[in-house]
Design a protein around this nucleic acid. Sequence first.
DNA 1: GGCATATAGTTAGTTATGCAACTAACCAAA
DNA 2: TTTGGTTAGTTGCATAACTAACTATATGCC
Lengths: 146, 146
Amino acid sequence: MPNNQFKRGELYSFMTGKASTAIARRLQKNFKQSGIEITVEQWSVLYHLWKQDGMSQQELCNATFRDKPSITRLVDNLEKLKLVKRVASKDDRRMNMIYLTEEALKLETQTMEVANITLNEALEGVSTENIAICKEVLQLVYDNLK
Amino acid sequence: MPNNQFKRGELYSFMTGKASTAIARRLQKNFKQSGIEITVEQWSVLYHLWKQDGMSQQELCNATFRDKPSITRLVDNLEKLKLVKRVASKDDRRMNMIYLTEEALKLETQTMEVANITLNEALEGVSTENIAICKEVLQLVYDNLK
DNA sequence: GGCATATAGTTAGTTATGCAACTAACCAAA
DNA sequence: TTTGGTTAGTTGCATAACTAACTATATGCC
């Protein structure tokens, strides 16, 4: 059990996720400054749809690590913003396939640029090796708990 | 600029903070299973008060990386639960000093035990060196953006 | 003392999250 | 085909977050 001797402070910094909160806040701020009027949560949904358009809500739940009500409401808001459309599946009428609108397609390049800038701000001064190790640890933590 | 060549997937896993979300959810679940009826956010405030009782709300903002309205409402809810008390400072009447109640003092040992168990679940299979590197990276990210 | 400014905290409005309960559609076994 | 269980999505309720605007107190400069 090599992990039993963790001290409180270490524990706490892991628990709270200050780093990811800080990244999300900065991304939101950078979106705003670029005149992009979406939330980072909405962006995280669009992100997966840019990779693969026409996902079901359940697939978006898995992809974004959110529960079903969260996705329902995010899709609600994205629909209000005319960025996505719900289309009932022909094969299985329980399912909504979520499709990007023209306007959402246009957002991809611009938002990804802002996201990359934000990430570079965040990772300034961090070595490539350590970033890789950090990613690996976070992935393991996620796998341990999901 | 060693960080410019990041690929989307890497970027995204950093952005979303799935690992910290997963830890927070697991901690909440473990609290519930132990019969502890507080939220992880409330716990994070109590955590700092256990270290130093009688902090002001502004100090709690800095410590927990939350804004003032968030702390106002967390303290509201903690007061409703009779876990803390607001006491107006004599030196500066703008300030509320937040004090733990007897009941909150009793919660420390039990919740810290649950938190330690949760952390061990999360970090199972991760080497001590890599945990240290990961912490270091997250701290740097936080410092870059805060 | 009096006025401008800064700081501590609150309130209001919108968005997001988690949980539980619900509806609708699908599916498989009797 | 009917019944019972499962899956996809929605709704209601409570908590929490960010922004902006607000009140009240303190401070510093004239």
